[in-house]
């Protein structure tokens, strides 16, 4: 059985209620704080985690998540540090689905099979490579599935039916449904997804749709769920709280907890 079980188990546990999945950057602003942040997110009701690995050239990210990555890089955080942190998180939380968001160079610069083996050993359930579209993904999918990691694909608003069918066929775990065009950021709101588009995905047999990009309020979560999504990811809004409270860790955790509770309550 594949480890996508953790996603399946989560969706089963939620019984039709939506999943709230915060995104943060591993090692932002440093490994120790990052570890405590993840504890707070889970303690406050996050159903799963989406965690980024800092990269120098994050073309799919807006300024907020770029800055999170640069903070981690400036703190000297390496992919090895990230994997060690992931392993600790997994040891503490055996059931929480953990998704890893990376850029392709971090995967391929040595050997992509090794990357997936190490991610699996760290307890990662899914990997989304932001700059590998489904059409170029075959070796990534093979390396992921060899170690029971779910390859995640993104459905953008401009995907045609051929692309949607391909994503439905090849994705596992969940499907990342873009709430809007552009790059990550809370400055531009998601557009309410068309229920018909989510239905097309479901009919094509895709893993459950999770909406991401432009999700920063409970209203956004409700709109996503009303359109038929199985949950929502909020990245820039979560990272903004970290950035706003870099000088006061206690206030950071308090604000993060309040945000996650508020967002989770909308599911």
């Amino acid at each position: 059985m594949m480890k996508t079980n953790r996603y399946e188990a989560m969706f089963a546990r939620l019984r039709g209620k939506g999943a709230f999945i915060p995104f943060v950057m591993l090692g932002d602003p440093d490994i120790e704080t990052s570890s405590a942040i993840i504890d707070t997110l889970i303690a406050s009701g996050a159903d799963a985690l989406e965690l980024g690995m800092p990269f120098s050239d994050a073309v799919a990210d807006g300024p907020m998540i770029q800055r999170a990555g640069f903070r981690a890089l400036e703190a000297g955080v390496t992919p090895t540090d990230c994997l060690r942190l992931l392993k600790n998180v997994r040891a503490k939380y055996s059931d929480v689905p953990i998704g890893l968001l990376v850029y392709a160079n971090l995967v391929v610069h040595q050997d992509l099979k090794t990357f997936y083996i190490e991610a699996a050993e760290a307890g990662v359930d899914s990997v989304l490579v932001a700059d590998v579209p489904v059409g170029a993904a075959t070796p990534f999918i093979e390396a992921a599935e060899a170690v029971d990691i779910a390859p995640i694909f993104v459905v953008p608003p401009n995907a045609d039916e051929t692309a949607i069918r391909e994503i439905a066929r090849r994705g596992r775990g969940y499907t990342y449904f873009l709430g809007r065009t552009g790059v990550t950021g809370a400055d531009r709101e998601m557009q309410t997804p068309l229920p018909s588009r989510i239905k097309v995905l479901q009919e094509a047999g895709a893993p459950p749709a999770i909406v991401g990009f432009g999700i920063s309020t409970p209203e956004h979560i409700r709109a996503a769920l009303d359109a038929g999504a199985a949950g929502a990811i909020s990245g820039s809004a979560t990272v903004a709280i970290i950035e706003r409270h870099l000088e006061d860790k206690a206030a950071m955790h308090e604000a993060l907890a309040a945000f996650v509770r508020k967002m989770k309550a909308a599911t």
């Binding site: 073309v59 392709a104 579209p133 059409g135 694909f153 401009n158 995907a159 045609d160 873009l178």
Partner: peptide
């Protein structure tokens, strides 16, 4: 090797 949104 680009985000899916740039492929079309």
């Amino acid at each position: 090797f680009v985000p899916e949104i740039l492929v079309p």
